[in-house]
């Protein structure tokens, strides 16, 4: 198995340039920025509010951009050309993941400036967010492999936004509907728990369990992606 960083960067540069001209996909960046701007005008925001914005970025930017730029390659028949070139699918997906990763980091930085979020322990919070980004990229890749067009991608992303973007809203109902207690294990909730613990002075050892749960999500999403990828290698 060869993996060429040069080809990954070629795909990355192409996608960055293409995205800069793609209003349909980049307009989704506005949603979390709007929320951040709106909340940013208030004082003393709770961790829940900060992370509602960050979780929204992860769903709307990370997963959606990743999913949409893969789906568009299929829709426009350009993926075929890439696959017939020396580029391998891991290289293609690697270049795209880098795009989603950088857009995500940029959007989160702007949002947290707007909401004035300054974590007590920046490196720990950054670690939790980066592991989370890996999960949302894997999820976006999985959905991108499953959808055939950007419109399909937009539909598929809806439940993701709903489940991961607004998961904290389901938590109050967990007493009434015990099934909803699984919500506590969602990566979005785990991320909030890490951040809340950090604010109250916890260190790495205290949150390692939460980080591990998010990491399990990363592994599950990657395995699912690998399975779908193997099944879709040739067309029939």
């Amino acid at each position: 198995m060869t993996f060429s960083m040069k080809r990954v960067m070629a795909i990355f540069q192409k996608d960055m340039k293409d995205l800069s001209k793609n209003i349909y996909i980049t307009s989704t960046l506005i949603l979390p920025l709007f929320f951040a701007f709106f909340y940013g005008r208030m004082d003393n925001l709770t961790i829940d509010v900060h992370y509602m914005v960050i979780n929204l970025v992860l769903a709307v930017v990370t997963s959606f951009v990743q999913c949409a730029i893969i789906a568009e390659e299929k829709e426009k028949n350009t993926l075929r050309g890439l696959m017939l070139s020396p580029a391998t699918l891991p290289e293609i997906l690697g270049g795209k993941s880098l795009v989603s990763f950088i857009l995500t980091i940029g959007t989160i930085l702007i949002c947290t400036m707007l909401t004035d979020y300054e974590p007590v322990n920046l490196s720990l919070v950054a670690l939790a967010i980066i592991i989370s980004i890996l999960f949302y990229i894997a999820l976006g890749t999985l959905m991108g492999l499953l959808s055939r067009s950007v419109v399909e991608a937009s539909v598929l992303i809806m439940p993701v936004i709903f489940i991961f973007g607004f998961s904290s809203m389901f938590q109050p109902f967990a007493e009434e509907y015990p099934i909803l207690s699984v919500v506590d294990y969602l990566p979005s909730i785990q991320l909030i728990e890490v951040a809340a613990a950090v604010e109250s002075g916890s260190g790495f050892a205290d949150v390692v369990g939460n980080l591990a749960i998010i990491f399990v999500w990363v592994l599950v999403a990657m395995v699912a992606t690998a399975i779908v990828y193997k099944k879709r290698e040739m067309d029939e």
């Binding site: 340039k17 293409d18 793609n22 426009k76 028949n77 350009t78 075929r80």
Partner: peptide, 14 residues
């Protein structure tokens, strides 16, 4: 190998 098929796509915005 080089290939052109009837549906070789190009990036329309680029």
């Amino acid at each position: 190998i080089g290939v052109i098929t009837d549906n070789s796509g190009l990036y329309s915005r680029l």
